[in-house]
Nucleic acid binder design. Structure first.
Length: 643
RNA sequence: GCCGUUGUAGCUCAGUGGUAGAGCACUUCCUUGGUAAGGAAGAGGUCAUGAGUUCAAUUCUCAUCAACGGCUCCA
């Protein structure tokens, strides 16, 4: 048979030669590290014979599929160790994930704690050293059902139910056998470095009405060095964590007396908010938005009109009763804005009307969901609602996307995914407003805009808002959690529910389409994200303190104060370190506080009217006159915000 | 909301069935110093909260609250 390799090289082998033997025929080195083979596009065990002409690619640790196979096999290894320590344990599924693998198990009342990790790891290492082969075996489905019935294993029986009749594959390594479609690495000996990461509860089949299984996360590597590097990388990520930096840089805080998920912005954090709002105000003014302001509460009747109540009552703070009326804290700004549009008596000549507000909302997020600033219960949204005609829609939607992209350039955000969420037909009338025709029409409009603008995106069914399709921008926190940072949503439902109308050119009343958009998301999430994105090293225009003035000794405090005044007059945020400390110490602390510029001032500077400039993380940047320094800084700020 | 873990000074963390300790930060004094930590002294804690066991609880038990790791959710 003819075997074709990725480099188009073709070699002849006897039919039935295994993948591993083919690898060996190329080189012993390859045979030692190869994990699996991609045969005609299908990832397969190396031990499986190849029977006819095929294209083969050998997968190693450096291939995503190789890694996944390695981790999948590691999950089986962990399962074997678990069975040793917890006889009778039942297994659900154990897939590879982005950074390792997990196995969901039913410990039947027992628990695993972090203290148990080391003994499980030790057992895994011991089993790995045995270099047990992962042996594939097929049996008819009836036989498999009998096998698991005998073991009284309801989980695997449930898995089998979902499989097609026919041959079922099993894998055995050492004393552990698992229902598994594979593929697997040749033997356990390839797994050299093992680390159990954490243990967590996970609902069976991801359904919160089901019982919870114990999910054990682990990660393995072919070399100890890889594990060490991975752990070091995690350590680095933790240093970027906005919760840590938020404390270290005094950006925000939480307090038990205030409540969970209710951040308090400290002066440094409030500066960043002010700068973001300034940027948004200018950007929106230039794009034809007008600003509005609305109260934080509204009567129940408005949320009945909007249609939010049936969908979201659970995640709103409970209502307050006043004079026989129920008032809710607002969880979204749209109904208030719809009311304003409704009073504007708009004609088609006025459209589009774009109402913007940094609206403060309150959402009663589930307690287990709260996460630093990224998931909170009080939040201020970079919100706006655009009311336009159907003809104007595509252009408006495109303009909103352009605004996103400009913001991303300003903040240098390049790792994100645009997610286009559509409805699911079987949930019309339940999760979604029941108007199939409008759903399809608006989804097509959105899709067309995305395609025409060449915006890369992924389309996900059954993730839309109840009132229309949406585009979310997904980003990741330092520790790898995924978040929506910005959103752009179509709403064809609420304008009708609020009776919103405009007069068209034929003097008839028509209902506008509404676009909800929040390119900067919420202050909370956006600043949480930015903190991690910049690792606390905010660019000059955003930095809470832009300049730290460091007098060499208290003899130069007066000069420092004069500089401080001049910077103030130029809208540059500075502070003076007047502590009775040596200059090295003041520099160190300013560096740790990540202040972009330090001005060292002593005798020489005072006499010459100059400042000695030091740039954060760069070091000494020479001496300049105060005027030149100020104009340099202003230019830098200008550059950063006018991308 | 659910499963698991944790809660000691502003921060990071030791520790103990007999009413608490370190480093950093902070205050004062000495020092007047030139590009990442000068020296000394001092102050600071209802050991998350509430109950229980005990002669005695920060320590053991239970409950509550909060944080953390996941799951479910996310207008």
């Amino acid at each position: 048979m003819k075997i074709t390799f990725p480099d188009k090289n073709v070699r002849e082998y006897a039919p039935g030669t295994t993948g591993l033997d083919i690898a060996k025929s190329i080189s012993e080195g390859l045979a030692r590290k190869v994990l699996a083979a991609r045969v005609n596009g299908e990832v397969r065990d190396l031990a499986r014979p190849v029977d006819s002409d095929a294209a083969i690619e050998f997968l190693t640790w450096d291939d995503t599929d190789g890694k996944s196979t390695f981790w999948h096999s590691s999950a089986h290894l962990m399962a074997e160790a678990l069975e040793h320590f917890y006889p009778g344990v039942k297994f659900w599924v154990g897939p590879p994930v982005e950074n390792g693998f997990y196995y969901d198990v039913d410990l039947r009342g027992k628990t695993i704690s972090n203290e148990d990790f080391s003994k499980i790891e030790a057992k895994m290492k011991e089993l790995a050293k045995q270099k047990n082969a992962y042996v594939r075996k097929e049996m008819p489905k009836e036989e498999a059902v009998r096998y698991f019935s005998d073991k009284d294993d309801e989980y695997k029986l449930d898995l089998l139910e979902g499989l097609e009749d026919g041959q079922i594959t099993f894998y055995t390594q050492g004393n552990f056998t698992d229902l598994c479609k594979g593929p697997h690495i040749p033997n356990t000996g390839l797994i050299k470095a093992i680390k159990l990461m954490n243990v967590a509860g996970a609902y069976w089949k991801g359904d919160d009405s089901n019982k919870q299984l114990t999910r054990l996360y682990g990660v393995t590597f072919p070399k100890q060095k890889d594990l060490d590097e991975y752990l070091a990388m995690l350590e680095e990520a933790r240093k970027r964590d906005h919760r840590k930096l938020g404390r270290d840089l005094s950006l925000f805080m939480f307090d038990d007396d205030v409540g969970p998920g209710l951040p308090l912005w400290m002066p440094n954090g409030a500066v960043i908010i002010d700068e973001l709002e300034k940027l948004a105000r200018q950007t929106e003014r230039d794009a034809g938005y007008v600003r509005v302001r609305t109260p934080h509460i509204a009567k129940e009747s408005m949320y009945k009109t909007s249609g939010h109540l049936p969908y979201y009552a659970d995640s709103m703070y409970p209502p307050m009763e006043m004079e026989g009326e129920r008032y809710y804290l607002k969880a979204m700004n749209c109904p208030h804005h719809h009311k304003i549009f409704g009073h504007m008596n708009a004609s088609y000549r006025d459209l589009p009307i774009r109402l913007a507000e940094y609206g403060t909302c309150y959402r009663y997020e589930q307690s287990g969901e709260l996460f630093g600033l990224m998931r909170v219960r009080s939040l201020q949204m970079n919100d706006a609602h655009i009311y336009c005609t159907e003809e104007q829609f595509a252009e408006e939607f495109r303009a909103v996307n352009d605004m996103y992209l400009r913001y991303f350039r300003i903040f240098n955000i390049d790792k994100y995914v645009m997610r286009f969420s559509t409805h699911s037909a079987d949930k019309l009338g339940k999760k979604y407003v029941d108007n199939a025709e409008l759903w399809l029409k608006t989804e097509k409009m959105v899709r067309d805009v995305l395609v025409e603008s060449g915006i890369p995106h992924v389309e996900v069914a059954d993730e839309a808002a109840f009132y229309g399709p949406k585009i979310d921008v997904q980003v990741w926190s330092a520790i790898g959690k995924e978040f929506t940072i910005a959103t752009n949503q179509v709403d064809f439902a609420q304008p009708g529910r609020f009776g919103l109308e405009y007069r068209n050119s034929k003097n008839e009343m028509e209902t506008p389409i509404c676009i909800h958009r929040a390119p900067l998301g919420t202050h909370e999430r956006f600043i949480g994200f930015l903190t991690e994105h910049y690792a606390g090293n905010f660019p000059l225009w955003l930095a809470p303190h832009q300049v730290s003035i460091l007098p060499i000794s208290d003899r130069f405090n007066a000069y420092a104060l004069r500089i401080h005044g001049l910077l103030n007059n130029s809208d540059i945020r500075s502070l003076i370190d007047r502590r009775d400390e040596k200059i090295g110490r003041k520099i160190r602390d300013a560096e740790l506080q990540k202040v972009p510029y330090m001005l060292i001032v002593g005798e020489k500077e005072e006499q010459e009217g100059t400042v000695s400039v030091r740039q954060h993380r760069q070091g000494d940047a020479g001496t300049r006159t105060i005027d030149l320094f100020i104009s340099d800084l202003k230019a830098e700020i200008q550059r950063q915000t006018s991308v």
